[in-house]
Computed example of a mutant assay.
Amino acid sequence: MAQIQPRHDPQRHQLSHQVAKTTTAVTLGGSLMLLSGLTLAATVIGLVLATPLLVIFSPVLVPAAITVFLILAGFITSGGFGAVASFVFYWMYRYATGKHPIGADQIDSARDKIAHAAHDVKDKAEHYGQQHVKGAQGT
């Protein structure tokens, strides 16, 4: 007995795949549109209910919100500065002990350039001083 092999139809497979993708996209898109509409409605209702309270308590809430913001900003800023200072001290310790931290080559290069520039300024000042002394003796 010969077995009958079902024919694989690529167009039919592609069509069913496209229908599945479209159905999924429409279902997901519709659900998200419904959720966004419900969220918008809830937001509007919440604002309508909260507006009288916000107006009544605004003389207290606005300064309180500003105060809380400034306090939080101060804590966050001081924490950030503390973290940066800790890192800088750690980097300086590693640099001073010769462990060659990241950026040490750039620091050494800058130090050498500054030392070279200072040496050049010293040489030029001595040269200018010698010319000035010779000019003063000649007159």
Rank of each mutant, 00 (worst) to 15 (best):
H127Y: 11
D123V: 10
H17F: 07
A96L: 10
Y95R: 08
P10F: 01
K124Q: 14
A42R: 07
L70C: 06
A25K: 14
Y90H: 13
A85R: 14
T24V: 04
A110E: 01
T43H: 05
A73D: 06
P101S: 00
S36A: 11
I107K: 02
A2G: 03
L34M: 05
V26C: 04
R94N: 13
A83K: 09
L35V: 01
L61P: 06
D112L: 02
T39A: 15
G30K: 02
L15F: 08
A125N: 12
P6S: 01
L47Y: 09
I114Q: 05
H17C: 03
A64P: 02
V68L: 15
D123T: 09
L61Q: 06
M92I: 15
A125F: 08
S36K: 07
H17E: 14
F75I: 14
R12V: 10
A115P: 01
L49W: 09
V121W: 02
P63Q: 02
Y95L: 12
G30Y: 02
K134F: 04
G46Y: 10
L70M: 12
A42E: 04
G103Q: 01
A2N: 11
Q3R: 12
V44N: 03
K99T: 03
A96T: 08
R111D: 04
L32S: 05
F69T: 11
A50D: 10
G98H: 03
Y95H: 13
T51M: 13
V48A: 11
T77C: 07
A83H: 07
L53W: 11
K21H: 14
A64E: 04
K134D: 14
P52I: 02
L35M: 10
K99D: 14
K134I: 04
M92Q: 12
A118H: 11
I71N: 04
T51L: 15
G135S: 13
T51C: 03
F75K: 08
L40C: 05
H17M: 09
G138D: 12
V55T: 13
Y95W: 11
V26R: 12
A125P: 02
T139C: 01
D112Y: 01
Q5S: 08
D120L: 03
Q131W: 08
V133K: 14
I45Q: 07
H100P: 00
V121L: 08
Q106V: 03
Y95A: 14
V44W: 09
A117E: 08
T39K: 06
Q18T: 13
G135F: 07
D123K: 14
I66G: 04
F57E: 12
A136H: 04
H132K: 11
V60C: 02
R12H: 05
I76N: 05
L40Y: 06
F69G: 07
R111F: 03
F89V: 12
V55S: 11
V133D: 09
S36Y: 03
